[in-house]
Design a protein around this nucleic acid. Structure first.
Lengths: 181, 181
DNA sequence: TAAACTCATTAACAAAAGATAATAAAGGTT
DNA sequence: AACCTTTATTATCTTTTGTTAATGAGTTTA
């Protein structure tokens, strides 16, 4: 990655800090930004037909996130993205992201590598966990993959991400702790 | 999309027909091809620690597939891709795919749109279905999304894709047929 | 400080899923 | 046609999950 490119990147990168509980993207928005979390915690969720909030995904430091429904399919966001802690993000709109890509081959690789890759990798790992693992194993896998998440986030959010109810997650935790002997 | 580009695409595109039951990609392979199904049916699967084949995904006409583990992460394929019917595919290796992309802006859009998009869209829809839907609803959703699949593929493969056992899928089918009155 | 709220746990019951095995139906092979 | 194989269904039993509600710990708010 050359210096010229780095300057261009820096010229186009914005940063912003959100307080705990603020919405970065709201359901229905058509924002095109790609966000990088410098510090903090974000969850995406929607409200289902029963009026319940269902958490779809959790993002922490060094992770990229964005409104995939708009970025990839030009549709309004199905999810709201809300901070669970005071959160500092770097961001730029996807067009700039793509302009940088076509100017710079290194960045083009990064484009697919960082944005596409990271998101695809997470997506595939997650589908894997639903297809190949029981809820109990899936929880243990999640603990391994995101060991710090459990201490920063209410269990009910984790339960949603794993596709089970909070009550069931609580029972799984109990079962695991009994098995430890 | 201009004519020059079309010719270049055609020069680089291969086609091949596989008999029923042949493997297009084998677990452990590091093939870099992107495949487009002209006619036929393909399933990806792996063999778990109990020696059982678990089907991960099913692909039919007009769908793209490829060895994501190699293409995206430069790792050997976790899955075997096997035809369930006599299958004709067009394919080209990802490098050519990417060379074409950098030569041609239209194709660059297509690159992320067709390959990235289609795969990401499917991946997200699938995660959605695990997070927001019960197995029963998930099956009904699958029927809607892939209405012809059910007639071409053994139920046990569908069950794997939905993350449930074949026995459980059979019960779901029975339950649904009773509810129809 | 007291009241209100959020969240994890636990209980009780119903519903659904996993595991295993037996049976039946359908396809393919010799 | 007779045989073998594969697959879907059904039954039985066990385990797990969903649902609802009650409890209690911990936080937040007035």
């Amino acid at each position: 990655m050359n210096i010229k490119f780095l300057f261009k990147l820096l010229r186009n990168l914005n940063s912003k800090t959100f307080d705990k509980g603020e919405s970065i993207i709201k359901e229905g928005d058509k924002t095109n930004n790609v966000f990088y979390i410098r510090k903090g915690l974000v969850r995406s969720f929607l409200i289902n037909d029963k009026g319940e909030e269902i958490t779809f995904q959790l993002f922490a430091e060094k992770q990229l996130f964005g409104n995939v429904h708009t970025i990839l399919f030009d549709e309004p966001s199905k999810f709201t993205f809300e901070t669970l802690e005071k959160t500092k993000v770097y961001f730029t709109d996807v067009k700039t992201f793509q302009d940088l890509s076509s100017d710079n081959l290194d960045f083009q690789k990064m484009d697919s590598r960082i944005f596409g890759r990271q998101i695809l990798k997470q997506a595939f790992q997650r589908i894997d966990s639903f297809v190949f693992l029981s809820p109990e194993k899936r929880y243990q896998q999640y603990l391994k993959d995101y060991p710090n998440m459990i201490n920063r986030v209410p269990d009910k959010y984790i339960a949603n991400v794993l596709g089970i109810t909070p009550v069931s997650l609580s029972r799984i935790r109990q079962r695991i702790s009994k098995k430890k002997y």
